[in-house]
């Protein structure tokens, strides 16, 4: 990383003595100021701290931040759409790209339901709408999906199931669920609409576990943000703070197999599972343009229709796939 220009550090110090520490990570003054403001807001909400203790704590957090600790770990959470995801060691910090994906999916679904006045083939008639979130990590997609689904007031309700291999991540996910009920972001009934289960989707026990939760084992929407970083990309493209603090297993798949690249390993597993649960729609996050192209090809090879969503940074971030034409609106290109 290039050295910060000295005049920038001087300007920062003149505004607040702790700003140069934050500047080491943020690299720009406006963002350093924002982080300082968020840290102060967080500290001012902590109970029973005298002013001088508050200041000590602020300095301590700024020091840790300067060494690369993610701000989200220091503040212990990250707002994600309408919910807050608790953050800590052992789980990936939710990303704005994923937030955008979930928000886009459910706003598209909402406008479809609106258009057809709830009277169409989109919703199952004999049971609730079912959403499966594979590789849920700290439960980010699951909780935001539920919060969005509540706003749709579906006649038969919904259920969301989050699956992950990491018990540490799921512990955090369950705590986040409780936390969002406490803050009122989710209603108390969310306890019954949301479940998390431990399973390794690269091995075959997952379907049985899903059947246990979802009676006949069928699902309507599968969403996944699986580990998709290549080993080379891990050392070359990830930021130092990511490598130092976030679990590698949430980023890089365990190993390649059957001629599939290591970074792509989860996608065939998700595809075959999606077919097995008779998913009507699949929404996936990928590492970008080339990987999206490979994933599209994989899904098309198995008979899915596919489309790609471009994220706010212009990257072809999501592959969407559907089986029958009633879901072809998924291909609607981005509006932002």
């Amino acid at each position: 990383m290039p050295r910060l220009p000295p005049h920038l550090v001087t300007t920062a110090r003149a505004q607040h003595p702790l700003l140069p520490l934050l500047l080491r990570q943020t690299r720009t003054l406006p963002l350093a100021l924002s982080e300082l403001r968020w840290l102060r807001e967080y500290i001012s909400q902590l109970p029973n701290l005298t002013l001088s203790r508050q200041h000590d704590h602020l300095r301590h957090l700024c020091r840790r931040r300067s060494l690369g600790a993610p701000l989200q770990y220091l503040l212990k959470s990250q707002p994600f759409g309408d919910v807050d995801i608790l953050c800590g060691k052992g789980a990936l910090i939710p990303r704005p790209e994923t937030e955008e994906t979930v928000v886009r999916l459910f706003s598209l679904l909402e406008s479809q339901l609106h258009k057809n006045n709830h009277n169409n083939a989109l919703l199952p008639t004999d049971r609730e709408l079912r959403v499966l979130d594979l590789c849920t990590g700290p439960g980010s997609i699951t909780l935001l999906a539920a919060s969005n689904l509540y706003q749709l007031h579906l006649p038969r309700g919904f259920r969301v199931l989050g699956v992950d291999i990491s018990r540490a991540a799921l512990t955090l996910a369950r705590r986040s669920l409780k936390y969002n009920i406490t803050t009122g972001a989710l209603p108390p009934a969310a306890k019954h609409s949301i479940s998390f289960i431990t399973a390794d989707i690269l091995n075959s026990n997952t379907h049985a576990a899903i059947e246990e939760n979802f009676g006949d084992g069928s699902v309507d929407i599968v969403i996944a943000n699986p580990p998709y970083v290549s080993l080379e990309g891990y050392w070359k493209d990830t930021s130092r703070s990511v490598r130092l603090y976030e679990p590698e297993m949430a980023l890089v798949p365990p190993s390649g197999r059957d001629g599939v690249r290591r970074e792509d390993v989860f996608y065939p597993a998700i595809e075959s599972l999606s077919r097995r649960v008779h998913a009507r729609a699949v929404v996936l996050e990928t590492g970008g343009d080339e990987q999206s192209a490979r994933v599209e090809q994989l899904f098309e090879g198995s008979g899915w229709r596919t489309g790609v969503w471009v994220d706010f940074a212009g990257v072809r971030r999501n592959v969407v796939a559907w089986g029958d034409d009633s879901w072809s609106w998924l291909a609607t290109s981005s509006h932002s």
């Binding site: 943020t26 406006p30 963002l31 924002s34 982080e35 993610p70 701000l71 989200q72 990936l92 910090i93 990303r95 704005p96 790209e97 994923t98 943000n225 580990p227 998709y228 970083v229 990309g233 493209d237 990830t238 930021s239 703070s241 990511v242 603090y245 976030e246 949430a250 980023l251 996050e285 990928t286 590492g287 970008g288 994220d311 706010f312 940074a313 990257v315 971030r317 932002s336």
Partner: peptide, 21 residues
């Protein structure tokens, strides 16, 4: 027109930036 302060680079899981402006 929506402008979002974006990092150059891979984005997504690769970075945990806090820029949200």
């Amino acid at each position: 027109r929506i402008d979002i302060m974006r990092a150059s680079g891979a984005g997504g899981q690769h970075v945990n930036r806090t820029e949200s402006a």
